[in-house]
């Protein structure tokens, strides 16, 4: 009996780790290949290998010294961070109203907010461009923060509304009995419980803003105000049709690593959340 149990347990354990391994390999392999490629140059790029056989940091050196890549990296950090903070701030309070207070037309309002994200990006390009010039923020980071709101805000509002709605009524009632105002309920009662949702939403929105390309290309006209995806697209070979794979891959590695670090920092927050005994559902 004990032996079969152990066998079952072992099988389960093996299968589980196999699954983890498959997930990790599938996710990471293309990135691994990108890292390999980033160490290569010239005709080597067209040759296939699975292990690093040449190791040169030349591409990284090129990228970091080309034009204003470090500056672009800073721009990206600033734009994405401000966009996300702004969106989260507006969305947390709004989602309280949308999830915990009943009023007529709530469903329609939510659908309208969602509707803003239903237009293809290039369709709003012309209108946004006019608006941005009208506001006089063309070619500044604010143009990007402004335009990114169009897709981050509906997303954060919807996700936070969904999660906030799931919080048990009893918690709120207890707070109301204690005489807490809505603001206090949000900041003191809900927010601590919402960490996984907040961090996840913020992270996903951050990546969304970090990777945006079309707006960033259209609303800036200067290497110093451009963001990383545009900078990568502008990395060029020596001649018109040449694609500098080595440099592009090096740049991609450089921009992906901060995000991975960000996840590692915030991942404890992703898993905290409601713990046993904290709340009775």
């Amino acid at each position: 009996m004990g032996a079969t149990f152990d066998l079952w347990k072992l099988t389960k354990w093996t299968l589980f780790y196999l699954l983890v391994a498959v997930i990790v390999v599938v996710s990471v392999f293309p990135f691994y290949y990108a890292i390999l490629t980033s160490f290569k140059s010239g005709t080597d790029l067209f040759r296939i290998n699975y292990w690093p056989d040449s190791f040169s940091l030349n591409n990284y050196y090129n990228v970091l010294n080309s034009g204003s890549f470090p500056r672009n990296l800073l721009n990206s950090v600033f734009v994405s961070a401000v966009t996300v903070l702004l969106a989260l701030f507006l969305a947390v309070t709004a989602s309280f109203a949308l999830s915990r207070v009943r009023f007529r037309g709530r469903g329609l309002l939510l659908l309208t907010i969602l509707g803003v994200s239903m237009f293809p990006q290039m369709a709003v390009l012309a209108g946004l461009f006019e608006l941005i010039r009208f506001l006089g923020i063309y070619n500044t980071p604010w143009a990007l923060i402004f335009s990114y709101t169009i897709f981050t805000l509906p997303f954060t509002v919807w996700v936070l509304t969904t999660f906030m709605r799931e919080l048990p009524v009893e918690i709120e009632e207890a707070a109301i009995v204690d005489g807490a105002t809505p603001w206090v309920i949000i900041t003191r009662v809900f927010l601590p419980l919402m960490w996984p949702a907040l961090v996840t939403t913020g992270l996903l929105a951050f990546i969304g803003a970090w990777n945006e390309f079309l707006f960033a290309l259209t609303f800036t006209s200067n290497n110093d105000t451009r963001t990383v995806p545009v900078a990568i697209a502008l990395l060029s070979g020596n001649t018109q049709y040449e694609i500098p794979w080595g440099n592009i891959m090096a740049a991609s590695v450089i921009v992906t690593v901060p995000l991975v670090v960000l996840v590692l920092i915030f991942q404890r927050k992703i898993v905290s959340g409601l713990t046993a005994g904290g709340v009775k559902g």
Binding site: I23, V24, S27, V28, P30, F31, A34, L203, L204, I207, W210, N211, F213, V228, P229, I232, A233, I248, A251, S252, V255, T256, L259, V260, V263
Partner: peptide, 11 residues
Amino acid sequence: ILIPWAIPTIV
């Protein structure tokens, strides 16, 4: 896991 989502689409 998050790496695929984190690489810019253009890349």
